[in-house]
């Protein structure tokens, strides 16, 4: 056999798009049928859930400590629920535009892709801008990073989320840029889909944060028991729910 044919069907056929182009479906390109990068994103999101879980547990442990020590400002004094509701709504809407962006490129609609990606990035930027405004307001009202435990855990948790949104916006703009330069093909819809996974995740996390941080008043958390017990339960409960959800 002078020119041996090498069987490369199996191990490295990674991109879903290519397989469709060549019409080879009897062997799935990957063992699970899911694209490498998509699976990577799912693994990353699993991890990111634990990142947010740790921060949320920290926040729930400490949110009441300001009241315990009598050191304001307290959450109840400072939150502007209507304002934050609007910015949460903005972020929710951005998930919708993200879905539309993906739908556009799956139909091969370049222009639609760019419009909806830009819309998503714009809504994301509005959210980040809102957060910046909110932080500035809080600082004016006397809540700094080191003012009390509520402030520390609040800024770190929501700031970490804000950083996620910011990175998402940069990612979306990169996709727009790539689309403008070379044109994104229908086969590259996966790039958009993966960005979408990330975006929706960040969005869902905000719903959780918004509920736990802004909507549930401190007293209800305090009812769980001594701060020690609440702490243990919140840590343990997070652990269980995450594990149950992912295994």
């Amino acid at each position: 056999m002078a020119t041996t044919a090498i069987d490369v069907r199996t191990a490295h056929g990674a991109g879903g798009g290519h397989v469709e182009e060549h019409g080879h479906s009897e062997h799935p390109p990957t063992s699970t049928g899911m694209d490498h990068r998509k699976l990577l994103m799912w693994a990353f999101l699993t991890s990111d859930t634990m990142f947010f879980g740790s921060l949320i547990a920290t926040y729930l442990t400490y949110r009441g400590r300001a009241e315990d020590l009598g050191e304001g400002p307290y959450p109840s004094e400072i939150f502007d629920i209507p304002f934050t509701s609007v910015s949460a709504f903005v972020l929710l809407m951005s998930s919708l535009t993200m879905v539309l962006a993906l739908a556009a490129i799956q139909k091969g609609n370049q222009r639609g892709l760019r419009i909806w990606l830009l819309a998503t990035a714009l809504l994301g930027s509005m959210f980040v801008g809102g957060q910046y405004f909110e932080f500035t307001e809080f600082v004016h009202e006397g809540l700094g990073l080191t003012t009390n435990m509520f402030g520390s855990s609040f800024y770190v948790l929501t700031g970490f989320h804000g950083a996620h949104v910011t990175i998402g916006v940069i990612w979306l703009l990169t996709l727009v840029f790539v689309s403008l330069r070379g044109g994104t093909t229908q086969g590259d819809s996966l790039d958009v889909e993966i960005a979408g996974l990330y975006w929706h995740f960040v969005d869902i996390v905000w719903i959780v944060i918004f509920t736990l941080v802004y909507l549930i008043p401190y007293e209800e958390v305090a009812d769980v028991g001594a701060s020690e017990a609440a702490h243990l339960i919140s840590t343990f409960g997070r652990e269980l729910s995450v594990i149950n959800g992912l295994w």
Partner: peptide, 19 residues
């Protein structure tokens, strides 16, 4: 968009001589 993906061998009938 170029990706961080593992580069693709071109598939043709499941077997092929590649670079």
């Amino acid at each position: 968009m170029a990706s961080i993906l593992y580069p693709q061998p071109q598939l043709q009938g499941g077997t092929q001589t590649v670079a």
